[in-house]
Amino acid sequence: MQIDLTVNGKRASLDVEPRLLLAHALRDYLNLTGTHIGCDTSSCGACTVLLDGVSVKSCTVFAVQASGHAVTTIEGIGNADSLHPMQEAFWSAHGLQCGYCTTGMIVSAVDLLQRNPDPSDDEIRAGLEGNLCRCTGYENIVKAVRAAGAAMRSGEARHSVNELMPIHPPREEPPPSGEGIIPQQLQETKA
């Protein structure tokens, strides 16, 4: 079947089987591999994208259902030159480890803030119930969403990856004892 959709602002015309899942259309026809697949029961949320601005699990949508609609994937949320505040917040708050659930989690969180720009921690946890993460224990994801909300509410400009690297300003003081290792050689001379 011929379908026409807009993906990350660009028109795409595809010839697909009716049974093709949107997740596979994005990944295998359009090479947008940031949308991940983690289950076969619509439980994990790794494949979350925005369909006409609203989050959906793209493994539960047929590609043909998206015809005539606009899809935003993680690649369209932001990129290295212009990170979405949610992407920046996940980075700054260490809201990811292996990164596999992260792209879907970020898209879901973007949708959550659209609906509720200033959620409480409990509302964030409830709002992300459709996305599973096995690495982070969710602590820093909640922190990231909170931080992104604050940044978005204050209208903070987007940053690029390069602006945020180097990541940490040089210390003016030695690290407090116990905070980190001081390599032996430096330890002797800096003591």
Binding site: I74, G99, H168
Partner: peptide, 13 residues
């Protein structure tokens, strides 16, 4: 410091 592996992970790249 922020992780250096993260830019590619958070942008789907």
């Amino acid at each position: 410091i922020r992780r250096r592996e993260d830019p590619r992970l958070i942008t789907g790249r």
